[in-house]
């Protein structure tokens, strides 16, 4: 027992170290980009642009978290954008058409996100089918349903408090970023210090082993997907506050950033290993590049090319790092 816990502690510490080395390397890349952009385009570090970055960053972070929590179980969620837009449109409808006060409307919208995520989780666990296929189908189902019900209208007569929150600023920091950081802190607590978070990671690392040692794997998967839906809804509502209007096109372009942030941050696609801080730095890198290219007027058109190359480069580097680490540890043992 003590031996087992000792090994766990040691491997845990090693995992923690390798995780941090990745995060530190990533932070280094972010700093280089900031130096490059700041020296080439002085507008990059203007208070106005820093505020704009903090607003987009907040949303990118939460979108990344939404994928990260299902990556922890070794699954994926392609329906994040669909869930986000469903929540946004419901919130818009409740506030504009029914005159529901905004705290209640936002709560209901968050609950809808959690519910849609829960449905994904239940379908995956019950059918035993790959989460990729289930969420691909449910994304189509949710978006289709939203368009049928909303007739693709835009709700832009929302309570002023919504847009006011998006425009609010403390220095050059948007309160949206504070919300994102608070969510990050909550996730750190969940995955480091609670049994539930540990169960989700265990289910992702090795589902069979986890099952045999008494972890309720199915429940862990459903919880992760419910949480993912809730986070997708949160990201959607933050975007609603930034845009000041509920639009049916929200979420269409979330797929790439949702994977970029956690994967750049060192999450394993096979599950069991994630880094909350890494995902935040990953999101920062994405936002930095996007904003830098905009300021340098490279234009939105080349952005996708850059992001795609980034993702390729990141996974290649990560692969190289893993191989290198394995070789070193083998060498030491021999």
């Amino acid at each position: 027992m003590s031996l087992a816990s000792d090994i766990e502690l040691r491997s845990g510490r090693r995992a923690w170290l390798s995780e941090q080395s990745g995060a530190i390397g990533l932070a280094g890349i972010v700093i280089i980009f900031w130096i490059v952009f700041a020296s080439w385009a002085p507008g990059f570090v203007s208070p106005f642009n820093l505020f704009a970055i903090s607003r987009t960053l907040a949303i990118d972070i939460v979108i990344g978290f939404s994928t990260m929590v299902v990556l922890a179980t070794g699954g994926m969620n392609l329906a994040i954008g669909a869930i986000g837009v469903c929540s946004v449109m419901l919130a818009g409808y409740l506030m504009q058409k029914l005159g529901v006060p905004y705290p209640l409307a936002l709560t209901v919208a968050l609950l809808l996100g959690a519910l849609l995520g829960w449905a994904n989780g239940v379908a995956i666990v019950r059918s035993g089918v790959n989460s990729f296929i289930i969420t691909l189908a449910s994304a189509s189902l949710y978006t289709g349903g939203m368009l049928i019900l909303s007739k693709a209208v835009i709700y832009n007569a929302l309570p002023p408090a919504i847009a006011a929150f998006g425009r609010m600023r403390f220095g050059f920091v948007s309160p949206l970023l504070i919300v994102a950081l608070a969510i990050g802190a909550a996730l750190v607590v969940l995955f480091r210090f609670t049994a539930l978070g540990r169960e989700i990671l265990a289910a992702g690392a090795n589902a069979r082993a986890a099952q045999l040692s008494g972890v309720p794997v199915s429940r862990a998967i459903i919880v992760a997907h419910t949480l993912s839906g809730l986070l997708a809804a949160a990201a959607g509502l933050m975007l609603l506050s930034r845009l000041g209007a509920a639009m049916p096109s929200i979420g269409e372009d979330w797929l790439l950033p949702s994977f970029l942030a956690p994967v750049l941050g060192g999450a394993l696609l096979s599950g069991g290993s994630i880094s909350v801080v890494g995902a935040m730095i990953g999101a920062l890198l994405v936002t930095t590049i996007r904003s830098g290219l905009l300021i340098m007027q490279v234009g939105n058109f080349w952005l996708l090319l850059f992001l795609g190359m980034m993702l390729l480069l990141a996974v290649l580097l990560d692969r190289y790092r893993t191989v290198y680490a394995e070789r070193r540890s083998l060498g030491r043992r021999a």
């Binding site: 696609l269 996708l304 795609g308 993702l311 692969r319």
Partner: peptide
């Protein structure tokens, strides 16, 4: 690379679309 084909093709998809939009500007 031995990396999951999902991530590889997610990345190359973005590269292909990026070239497409960069060249044509839509």
């Amino acid at each position: 690379t031995g990396i999951n084909g999902f991530i590889i093709t997610l990345a190359t998809a973005s590269v292909f679309t990026g070239i497409n939009l960069g060249v044509t500007e839509s």
